[in-house]
Each structure stands twice: as C-alpha cells, then as structure tokens.
C-alpha cells in the first residue's frame, strides 16, 4: 500500500491509529495532530451537507443531522472535487438510515433541497419568446405532435408526503408546522427563473404533464397521461405555468401522430 493510501484510510477511520512515520518537533503524540486532518475532512463535508440540506437539518435538529451526515460522509465520501455536487446520494441514504425512520418524509424533503441546488447551478439557456410560441398557433394540426425542450433547471418531485408544505413552512420565521399534515401527498415543480430558484406546488397531474414534456413526449401524449392521472387535469393552467415561468427553450412541431417533420 502506498503512503497516501495508508494516510487516506486512517483519515476516514478514527479507530485506526495515525500512519507510521509522522512526527512532531517535540515528540508529542502524532495522533492528536493527525486529528486536525480528520477533523477538517469530516467537519467540512458535514458542513457542505448542512448547507445543501438546511430544512432537513431543521426538521431533525442539528445534533441528529450532523451525526447522520457523519455516517454518510464516512460511508460515501465525495467523488468529485466540486463540493456543490456532493450529496446526490444523501436522500437515498436517509431512506435506509433506520434512526431517521420516525421522520418518513425526511428523504423527500432532502430530494427537494437537492433539486433546488441543481436548479440553482443548472445551465443558462434562453427561453423562447412569446412570438415563437404564438407562432405554433398558426398551424394547429401540428400542435398535438409538438415536442419541446424544457429549461435544464426544471424538475418534478412527486411525493407521498407534504414535501412542499414542509419545506415552505421552514422559509418563514414562524413555520406554523402544526397546520401541516405531513402525510398529505404533494407534487412540486422546481425551476430557476432568472437567478431565483422557485418551488411551485402543483397538482399531481400537472406534474405528470411536466415530466412527460421533460422526457420529450408530445404535447398530446403528455396531456393524455396527465388526464389518465386525474380526469380533471387542467391543460390551460398547465400551459400557463409553462409560459409564465418561461421554461420552454425550443419547440419541435410535428404532425398529429407525433412524427417530427
């Protein structure tokens, strides 16, 4: 094993003594000095998770969150030097972390916070202007087969829990959590509008509609799948959402069978 392999493995396992060959000028126990490096790594990575998942930390309290984050850090250290990407696997880890099972909605709140950060840093792509969108109205037969590119910041989170209400409550000084029933299913649309990340509480069927469009399905298919989810799906409201938030970046008109020209 190389010197750095030994050093690295001791860093992440405090039960191991520090590697041989380390010394201090005064002959003091090198373990205490080695602990500085252990501390830097573990604490800085826990801090990175706390910055990405602030509502999760509020939900379970700082002591529990940091202890849970420590288990994750040691089990799954980052693979990228870019720390803002760290923690993509944290929600799935929470799902399997039994001490957190009394807060069953915690992992989905983590998923929402992760999506928000991804939206925040997602690529800058100019939305289409109103004229481009109005233009497709000039050829209605090509509308059902219309496909579109949705802005890279956009994501849909469909949850069995009141993930939006729980998250939103923590954005206010007085969370008013007593009024939130965590077991109410909610769907959230995440997007970046200008420089601001937005969370929008949407109907489940609207979430299906958005998801299908993101997957490059046709407008007709997206509408049908949304209706299958909820017969009362409101297409006008869903389209208004797309337009108001300016999240369409390209349009690809097709025929009524969804075939591209």
């Amino acid at each position: 094993m190389s010197e750095q392999t030994v050093f690295a493995s001791a860093l992440l396992d405090p039960a191991q003594p520090c590697p041989d060959g380390l010394r201090a000028w005064n002959g003091s126990d090198p373990n205490q000095r080695f602990a500085v490096y252990r501390n830097n790594i573990v604490v800085s990575l826990i801090d990175a998770l706390a910055a990405t998942f602030p509502v999760c930390q509020q939900l379970v309290g700082e002591a529990f969150f940091r202890a849970m984050a420590r288990v994750f850090v040691v089990a799954q250290p980052p693979r990228s030097q870019i720390l803002t990407f760290y923690g993509r696997e944290f929600p799935a880890f929470i799902d399997t972390f039994s001490p957190a099972s009394s807060v069953p909605y915690l992992a989905d709140v983590a998923r929402l916070e992760r999506l928000r950060l991804d939206a925040f840093h997602s690529a800058d792509v100019e939305p289409l202007g109103t004229e481009d969108i109005t233009g497709v109205l000039s050829a209605p037969p090509r509308l059902p087969g219309l496909r579109m590119d949705i802005h890279p910041s956009v994501a849909v989170l469909q949850s069995r829990f009141a993930v939006f209400s729980l998250w939103a409550a923590h954005q206010q000084a007085d969370p008013g959590l007593a009024r939130v029933d965590p077991l109410q299913p909610e769907t959230v649309l995440v997007l970046r509008s200008g420089l601001e990340v937005q969370c929008i509480d949407i109907a489940e069927a609207t979430g299906v509609f958005m998801d299908r469009l993101i997957q490059k399905e046709t407008l007709s298919q997206a509408e049908q799948d949304a209706k299958a989810c909820e017969p009362g799906f409101d297409l006008v409201a869903a389209l208004t959402l797309l337009l108001r938030w300016q999240i369409i970046t390209s349009l690809y008109p097709g025929d009524e069978h969804g075939q591209l020209d």
């Binding site: 379970v60 009394s102 807060v103 965590p182």
Partner: peptide, 22 residues
C-alpha cells in the same frame, strides 16, 4: 446510536411514525 430526531419534526401534526426507530 442514541440520538433521536429533535427538531421541527416534533411540531408537525404527526411528528413520528409508529414504526420509527427511537
């Protein structure tokens, strides 16, 4: 493991599930 979640989750209408560890 001795910690239990002690945050705002305790303020929600149903703070914990009946099956939760701790």
């Amino acid at each position: 493991w001795t910690l239990v979640p002690k945050g705002t989750c305790e303020e929600t209408a149903s703070p914990t599930s009946p099956t939760g560890f701790g």
